[in-house]
């Protein structure tokens, strides 16, 4: 890479890292204000959403009706706060809308719905997003379009049989325009995913199903940017990214702590969390 390009990519990373901190603040604020939400899983996947929406996918409020734009399906629908944070930043809706989150008659409910601008599919029951994405990817192939379909699933979600049914179809139809991402945070509601139901070896399982499989630190902006640049990983094969993340990432006392799947911060926890994020912002500036 030339020095100029290197400088540019550092600039991009820096910009997105700042955004991730802003998104984390939005997530914490939203959950704290409305006294409801899925904290841990939103914090684990928000860096992936950040890179996808700001760097990888061509989805903007202005091109929603374009037939050749990319598509994103939030299969782990409970982590809707992360999606709201990113869509709000992209201008799909204004910040004041967020004050209606989970309130009477608001479209901003605890799972993604198409009543919210920028959201393409109603999710919340786990194990649906991949089949739906396979359908979209198949349609794009039929019409010889170049757009890509992205979806994020939870690692606990992988026990739903429908995911494996969809995986067979994805490979069968050679959907290299499909990008399935696993938020591999090793936790679900009850505890460690491997203690609840062992699904390892995941890498080999996905390979055997016919995916091109890649691993990435799902909380590292730079690594995420690089990995998505390589799509399609292998021509004719669906893409699968195992994004190794930390549930509750960014807030010390929430990190890798099963209690924060859907806990709401108390007043003092909220203040501490916001202070930690301010601190992260300061250290980023000093770099």
């Amino acid at each position: 890479m030339s020095l100029d390009l290197q400088f540019l990519s550092h600039q991009i990373e820096y910009k997105l890292e700042r955004k991730s901190i802003e998104y984390r603040k939005s997530i914490i604020k939203l959950i704290y204000m409305s006294k409801a939400g899925h904290t841990g899983g939103s914090l684990s996947c928000v860096d992936i959403l950040n890179v996808l929406y700001n760097q990888v996918m061509n989805i903007t409020p202005n091109n929603v009706s374009a037939i050749d734009r990319d598509h994103y399906i939030h299969s782990k629908g409970h982590s809707v706060e992360a999606l709201y944070a990113v869509l709000m930043d992209l201008g799909f809706f204004s910040e004041d809308k967020m004050s209606t989150f989970e309130k009477y008659n608001s479209p901003f409910i605890g799972h993604p719905t198409r009543n919210v601008p920028g959201i393409e599919q109603n999710t919340g029951a786990l194990g649906h997003g991949l089949s739906f994405s396979v359908g979209m990817a198949l349609a794009a192939k039929m019409d010889r379009r170049n757009n890509k379909i992205f979806t994020i699933m939870g690692d606990g979600e992988l026990t739903e049989g429908s995911i494996w049914e969809a995986s067979a179809s994805a490979a069968h139809y050679h959907l290299d325009n499909l990008v399935a991402i696993i938020d591999r945070n090793n936790l679900q509601i009850t505890g460690k995913t491997e203690k609840v139901m062992n699904m390892e070896p995941l890498h080999e399982k996905f390979l055997a199903y016919g995916y091109a499989v890649r691993h990435v630190d799902g909380n590292d902006i730079g690594e995420l940017i690089s990995i998505f640049r390589e799509i399609p990983f292998e021509s004719g094969k669906p893409n699968l990214v195992i994004a190794h993340t930390i549930k509750g990432k960014g807030i010390s006392f929430m990190e890798d702590n099963v209690a924060w799947h859907h806990r709401v911060p108390t007043d003092s926890e909220f203040l501490t969390a916001m202070q930690e994020l301010e601190q992260a912002e300061l250290s980023l500036e000093c770099q």
């Binding site: 409801a36 629908g77 989970e102 309130k103 409910i109 605890g110 799972h111 719905t113 109603n122 999710t123 919340g124 029951a125």
Partner: peptide, 8 residues
């Protein structure tokens, strides 16, 4: 499940 919506 109230505001978790129709899926729930």
């Amino acid at each position: 499940y109230g505001a978790l919506g129709t899926t729930h």
